[in-house]
Design a protein around this nucleic acid. Structure first.
Length: 294
DNA sequence: GCGGCGC
């Protein structure tokens, strides 16, 4: 079994030029240098799903952990925790997802403080990366965190793999153990005020039922295409899924509700600057369709 | 231009 590490099997790509699996599409690559270490971040996708490969490379060694896509935001949260917490309040953490467990441990030696992240899975040897805290305040962890944030953001924007994700964007995680307390996940969520949302004719507040159903809320037709707007909900919060359906192809973007207001503003901007262009078109080939109410 | 990791 390939597990979820995708093609090539772990470490098999050493020296060889070729990717073995062939299936794995690279969506995003980033590198980060911390002291003399180089970290590679590769967001990849294969038919089994999406994952983030994080490799630590020093002159002689390389080690890699594989984070399922559902874990990326947890990694981000955890790194935020280690960056933001007081030095004395740092505890070890465990993160369990799919069939593996990630251990986060703080260490210190005369070179400084470091965060050890190791992945333990059933069948594979434990693999570990070690992220130096950095010489100035947490510059290593912080930089690492920033990259995770970028990737997490980018990952939502890539079209989901064609596996069905009827109601949730590939988030199946068992959970976070240990003393991950209040304030850890809570983070940065501003309550959305609907007073600023002047979305008339096409959006109404969904009823409880519809939210409960992750109900289909709106559909518009534009030429041959249909666009579905669905509110959804998972353990990371609420989101709006916008799907484009043409023929039998469907692709979606998942927009966390925290980004909806900006999204709305940007759409408004484009409506504004193209006003003259679209004036004559509205209603001609665009129809808003309300699903059966009640 | 390190050094932690594993037993």
């Amino acid at each position: 079994m390939e597990g979820n590490s995708g093609g090539g099997g772990g470490g098999a790509d050493k020296g060889g030029g070729g990717e073995r699996g062939g299936n794995d599409v690279e969506l995003l690559c980033k590198t980060l240098q911390v002291e003399h270490k180089l970290f590679y971040f590769d967001l990849k996708e294969n038919p089994r799903g999406r994952y983030l490969k994080i490799s630590e490379k020093t002159s002689a060694t390389r080690s890699t952990i594989i984070v399922p896509s559902s874990g990326i935001s947890w990694f981000l949260d955890l790194f935020n925790y280690y960056v933001n917490s007081d030095e004395h309040d740092l505890f070890s953490k465990e993160l369990q997802l799919d069939n593996k467990v990630f251990y986060f441990d703080i260490g210190e030696n005369r070179r400084g403080r470091f965060l050890k992240v190791s992945e333990a899975s059933v069948s594979r040897n434990r693999s570990t990366i070690i992220v130096p805290a950095g010489s100035t305040r947490d510059e290593g962890w912080e930089a690492f965190r920033n990259i995770l944030a970028d990737i997490n953001e980018a990952s939502r924007l890539f079209i989901m793999p064609n596996q069905q994700q009827s109601s949730e964007p590939s988030e199946h995680l068992v959970g976070l153990s240990d003393d991950v307390g209040a304030g850890f996940i809570s983070g940065h969520k501003q309550p959305t005020s609907n007073s600023d949302l002047n979305v008339d004719r096409s959006v109404e507040l969904p009823t409880q039922d519809e939210i409960g159903n992750m109900g289909v809320s709106k559909v518009i037709r534009v030429d041959q295409k249909r666009f579905f707007f669905d509110l959804g909900n998972n353990n990371r919060g609420h989101f709006l899924r916008i799907s484009e359906v043409a023929g039998s192809d469907r692709s979606s973007i998942i927009l966390p509700l925290s980004g909806l207001k900006q999204f709305h503003e940007i759409v408004g901007h484009f409506v504004e600057i193209t006003k003259d262009l679209i004036e004559g078109m509205i209603g001609a080939n665009v129809r808003t369709v309300d699903p059966p109410q009640r």
